[in-house]
Amino acid sequence: MTTAIAIGMDGLIYASWLFLVAAGLTVIYGVMRILNMAHGSFYAIGASAGAALVTWYFANVDGNAYWSFLLLPAAAVVAGVILGLAVEQGLLRFLYRQNEILMVIVTYALLLILEDLTKLVFGVDPYFAYQPYGLLGRCEIAGLIFSNYDLMLVAVSATIASGAWFILNRTVTGKLLRAVVHDREIAMAMGVNVSAMFAATFVVGATLGALAGALTAPAISVSPGIGVEVIILAFAVVVVGGLGSIEGAIVGSLMVGLSRAAAVHLAPEIELFVIYGVMALVLAVRPQGLFGRAAARKI
């Protein structure tokens, strides 16, 4: 029973982290049909910026320690907006007519560039911004100890998920976005400002990636190279759910998160394969993912 609860809780915590990382990727793909390989870099930059700011704050400012909870997302939003705008306006908008696979290569080039830029800006030494993590303390659930920071991430993740769902399904902006997804040209002809939509979407997606990194920063040692694993994980999650679908990302994170937690507790040696195992299994049965729609070519 304890194991079951542990699996459930750990799975939930891991799933909310996965959703945080995957959300930006799926939003950008859903609207723009760009699989952003540089998403992992946004995550890494958000983590570095957040960690650097928090480290600086604790070293140099003698203020209330709880301010660090605002500094993390603030650093992420600033980094995400600047980067997102720069990348979208400076590069991607010139390439929207290209096919999906070429865009993968373009964003791969971006990944290479951003990896080195991150090192140049933040250095190669790891950051440890552990203070916010310890600040919240721990709690006991059914005899098991959990970090309150991790539980807070679950809440943040749930908020972002419901917020995204609400915007897409219950607001005018969401309707316009879905119109753009459905048919770019028609939406444009109907007077929807598609280029503004694209720019906004990319900035939001990039910021989500940076936010995921910043919020994760206190729990890990932030060092170069953390971005690439993230893009593969995020892709696995998003593929399980169906590329471009928020509901899919939620279900995908839960499936992958719970499976991994189960593996960690029951069969640690297969942990590495579980994530990809879930992905391979889903893809074998439903190549378009659980929430994706299969597109047959019209002839």
């Binding site: 096919n99 993968v104 694993e229 593929v239 990809y276 391979a280 893809l283």
Partner: peptide, 25 residues
């Protein structure tokens, strides 16, 4: 047998994931 079913970004990302599994192992 698995890969031949996929195209475009799926092929690209699955091939990446498979290589990273070997790396992890």
């Amino acid at each position: 047998l698995l890969m031949a079913r996929y195209r475009d970004i799926f092929f690209a990302m699955l091939s990446l994931a498979l290589s990273m599994i070997l790396f992890g192992v």
